[in-house]
Amino acid sequence: MQGLDFSIVPEYWPLIGKGLWWTVVISTASAVLSVLAGIGFALLVLYAPPVVRYPVRLFMWLFMGTPLLLQLFLIYFGLVQIGIDIPAIWSGIVALSLHFAVYNADIFRAGIASLDKGQTEAARSLGFGAWRTRIYIVVPQAVRGTVPAVGNMMIALLKESSIVSMIGIAELVHSAQLVISETYRPFEFYLTAAALYYGLNLILEAVLRGIERKVELSR
């Protein structure tokens, strides 16, 4: 037992700060991609021909039934295996995006399914084609209703982005680990990292509340 000493934390701020920055970058990129891919998966599951629909459903089922960490290992080691050699950071972003895209797709699918059929009929009667109706009329409405649920997914994504530290990406947890290997002070630096995540989480919640209010007003 060596006792706790937080006074050494500021000394390592440059490294920690850099990690924090990368956590924000990776989370933001993955969040955007997971929403776009989620909408895509939802549309495919609902409207694509069976040859496409069933593989997508199988994929979703597979990714909902397994842990993110395992998916990260599969993508990180698997991409190299099939000849795609990209930096680790992209493996991390792909894993996070796909993992959350699957959950987002499930939310969007339910949102689209709950929409009034009259909307589709009205758009079709104006002369919109099937896909144009979906993209211009159905999706924008469905997405509005799913903002709170998708927001919860983004809150989970921010926290789970810490997992990409396991493949050596220098985000917040990984930076903390680097500092700890030098200082042997895990408690102080993990607690610091936790506090920074808590702060990021508060900011994200405030942002989501803002978006929810805006969407609520435009409904």
Binding site: K159, E160, S162, I163, S165, V173, I180, P186, F187, E188, Y190, L191, A193, A194, Y197, Y198, N201, L202
Partner: peptide, 14 residues
């Protein structure tokens, strides 16, 4: 509000 991963590290390493 904090990652489960860090909670595990805090308890095990810290």
């Amino acid at each position: 509000g904090t990652p489960a991963l860090i909670q595990i590290f805090l308890l095990y390493f810290g």
